[in-house]
Amino acid sequence: MEAIQSFPEKNEEELPSSPEWSRRPSLSMLMGRKIIRSIGTLHELIAFSLITLSVTLLKFNRSKAVVHPLIRSQIYLAGIRLVPLVGMVAVMTGFIVVGQLISLFSMVGASRYTGLVMVVAVVRELGPLMTAMMVLARVGTSTVIELGTKRAMGEVEALEALGIDSIHYLVVPRVLGLALSIISLTIYFILISLASAYLFVFMQDIPMKPGAFINQIAGALHVSDFLMLVLKSFFFGTIIAVVTCYEGLARPIRLGEISSAATRAVMKAILFCVLLDAVFILYWMV
């Protein structure tokens, strides 16, 4: 007790103040924090994905009367309802991008490369990526808002209290629904944009018969293109669903934070989709 009395605590005023430069974080500190936070988020996202995968595999056939209609409802929301929008964008893409490329090629006498360019531009790149972005804009953001609201209003805890697995009930239908929808919509997008590209060619009086057009595309396509197309679209759908569900559900959230969670989810989903696209480009280059 005496020892304590002999060393009285210093008042805050007596403590030497730290210099201004030591309080302000340096650029390297800021970057370091950002990197550590990003690694943490990536770690959580991977864990969330693995949990979703295990629940999908283990519980796919459980509670079919509840979960399977939810999958169908997601296919309707993310697939069938987007058919007009995707069709319209596909027509414009066919006209503006592909049609112009073809007419340009025929002007410089490089018509024999048309098929290859179509496959690279539409089948491998534009089709899957543009479809995924449209689904992200229309369905991804609403998923974050819907799930974020459920989380903020305590409905997720209510599900758990009733023994209902929230991943099984809320996430699995969205992952499967979005993945299947994006695969179907991508194929639809490719077919529409190729057809509209030929329409452009026809309207420009470029001498190319439908048979030659189809033959060129068929000649440039490989079996791996079909496989990669399905895989890429499936993973785009999975990424969008997992990222948006993660942002809406994984952490406690207040109603006022939902809009920023939606923005974060969109940015992350775009980033991960582009990164995945780069991986596929590497496959085709090698």
Partner: peptide, 8 residues
């Protein structure tokens, strides 16, 4: 009905 249907 949800809890009843979910737990089959």
């Amino acid at each position: 009905m949800l809890p009843l249907a979910y737990h089959e």
